[in-house]
Amino acid sequence: MNKVVHIILAILLPPIAVFLKSGAGKDLLINIVLCFFFWVPAILHAIWLITKD
């Protein structure tokens, strides 16, 4: 159930979802940069991080 909530959050606010999953680090920085250019790659990056485990 927690993974479903993270995926919904990744669709709405990708950097928040990445922060909750990975903390403040390179993954968060990558996601923030992706958000500045396009929203869809940031969503895909966040979903990939959440589901890769």
Rank of each mutant, 00 (worst) to 15 (best):
W48H: 06
L12K: 14
V5F: 05
H45I: 01
A24W: 13
F37N: 03
H6D: 11
I16R: 14
I50L: 08
I11W: 03
L34W: 10
N2M: 13
H45C: 04
L12I: 15
V5Q: 13
D53C: 03
L12M: 02
F36S: 11
I8Q: 07
F38M: 09
A42Q: 04
K26R: 09
F38D: 12
V40F: 13
L44R: 09
I11V: 11
P14I: 10
V40W: 12
F38H: 07
K3H: 05
I16T: 14
V33Y: 03
F36V: 13
L12F: 11
I30D: 02
D27Y: 08
L28S: 04
A24S: 09
W39P: 01
F19K: 13
C35N: 07
G23V: 08
L49D: 01
A42I: 03
L9R: 09
M1V: 10
K52Q: 04
G25V: 14
I11M: 03
G25S: 08
V18I: 11
A17V: 09
G25D: 15
I8W: 04
K21I: 02
C35M: 13
M1N: 07
I8R: 15
A17R: 10
L12T: 10
H6Y: 08
C35Q: 12
D27K: 09
H6Q: 15
I43E: 07
W48Y: 10
A17K: 09
L28I: 02
L34D: 05
V40P: 08
F19Y: 15
L13N: 12
A24V: 15
N2Y: 03
G25R: 07
M1W: 01
T51S: 04
S22N: 14
A46T: 01
G25Y: 13
V18E: 04
L29R: 13
A42C: 02
A24L: 15
H45A: 04
L13H: 11
I16E: 07
K21H: 01
V40Q: 07
D53S: 12
L13Y: 14
V40D: 04
H6P: 03
I32S: 11
V4P: 00
V18R: 06
F36L: 11
L49S: 00
F19D: 06
P14V: 06
P41R: 10
P15I: 10
I11Q: 03
P15F: 13
V5W: 02
L44K: 02
I7V: 15
L34Y: 10
V40H: 05
V40A: 08
I11L: 06
K21G: 00
K52N: 11
H6I: 00
G23E: 05
M1D: 05
L20E: 03
M1K: 05
M1C: 03
D53W: 07
A42H: 06
W48I: 01
F37D: 01
